[in-house]
Design a protein around this nucleic acid. Structure first.
Lengths: 240, 240
DNA sequence: AAGTGGTCTAGACCACGGC
DNA sequence: CCGTGGTCTAGACCACTTC
């Protein structure tokens, strides 16, 4: 009957956060036992069900693993399979720096394919952003993004060279990115792509067409990416 | 305080099942409202928390969608993204018949790459199964499977031409397939592949290396697949 | 036997959406 | 206003694992 927070962060979220914190601080390593339900309830002065909710939630996210009759343990280092991440984020997670060169950044119209993918009217104006991505000084991908020009007017004046497009959308436009549907196939480099990517023409490239949705299921972004197959591997985990 | 089932199926599972049933029977269509927490609690004679657990669980699995202040609704027809399915199953879900021709099926040794992927000793004997997959009478993929010959002795005498390898493993060997990690890139058809697949040589192909694990995390199968890019599209959904 | 997670009760108040 | 889902209480018993 004490210290509730009806208008603030739910208790179970606070407990989750506290546990996350000690794990991220390295005070608990994978395999280490995590404070039990009853202990958490006592320490945080909540009921068992509430403490439990925190642990169940962490388990669902793969942060901890629970074993009946034994306890709750820090889960193995999580591998980010099937995570929607921007190029900048992907490079960051591998401790590489993202570099990219903007080849094209304008508002255009009459882009039938792009408007269709974005689920907007065919005559809508579209913001097209074409970038050459580098890793370790070597070009490895050609990415073309399309966004609704109406919805993201002013994006072109953002510091796209240095800031991540994802973080700009999330921070400056309040967009919550949720998931993406991707279509993957193989194609051949035409002379233009080949020169940009520094590979022989007719080189096989991985082509990924990515439609990115907000958490509410609204299409935000369409990205067409061409990746050097010798420098890029797509990793997926599937579940039965 | 009535009818508990301490030794049986938990109440919330039974409620889940009941809801699933009416959805699968078509009595509730996507978008339809599902019985509310309070109503479920009353009807099934359980407490609110228990009824709630059933709905939360169904939501996590994507069967229903919950909206605060409004209600719980049947979710949109789920598209099986990121589902580990065999070729036979994939074709079945598109109402196509799977046909395939066995090109090679023998126990061999000294397969360094395969034993490494299978996480077994380099000298272990390995069962290699190479199949040409068809769709609508046209070849479209070349799949080579590797399994531990020790673990799956006798598999070669199974009716591989007609039965799915997945279902044989699951039924006859009691293997519970759990998930797969896949590595995707693009490659070029060499003359041999090109002839088998009926494409020009140097045609770009989608290459998928698939390590399939049991639910317990043990490697069961390694599959190297080469797919005609003009006939195949890999679909992925990623979450943020 | 002691401690853990798994299930469950019979309520409570809050926040939100639609009428 | 009413009904919905979201959070929470202060316990209870069960099943399981370890000692």
């Amino acid at each position: 009957m004490l210290a509730k927070s009806p208008n603030g962060i739910p208790a179970y979220r606070r407990i989750e956060g506290a546990i996350r914190k000690v794990i991220e601080a390295g005070e608990l390593k994978p395999g280490d036992v995590v404070t039990s339900e009853r202990e958490l309830a006592r320490v945080h002065d909540v009921s068992l069900m509430t403490a439990r909710q925190a642990l169940v939630s962490l388990e669902r996210e793969g942060v901890v693993e629970r074993r009946r009759g034994v306890g709750t343990f820090v889960a193995a280092p999580k591998i980010h399979f099937n995570k929607l991440m921007s190029y900048t984020e992907q490079m960051g997670s591998r401790r590489l720096t993202a570099e990219s060169k903007i080849l094209f950044a304008k508002v255009i119209d009459n882009e039938q394919d792009a408007t269709a993918r974005l689920s907007i009217s065919p005559k809508s104006r579209v913001l097209k952003l074409e970038r050459l991505r580098h890793v370790a000084g070597e070009p490895f991908a050609l990415e073309t993004c399309y966004l609704s020009a109406e919805q993201f007017s002013g994006l072109l004046s953002a510091p796209l060279r240095t800031a991540s497009l994802f973080s700009t959308l999330e921070r400056d436009y309040g967009v919550e990115l949720g998931y993406s549907d991707e279509e993957v196939d193989a194609t051949m480099a035409d002379p233009g792509m080949a020169e940009l990517l520094g590979v022989p023409k007719r080189e096989p490239l991985l082509r990924i067409r990515q439609v990115i949705y907000s958490t509410k299921g609204v299409v935000i972004l369409y990205v067409l990416g061409l990746y050097r197959s010798d420098r890029h591997n797509l990793l997926i985990r599937r579940y039965r």
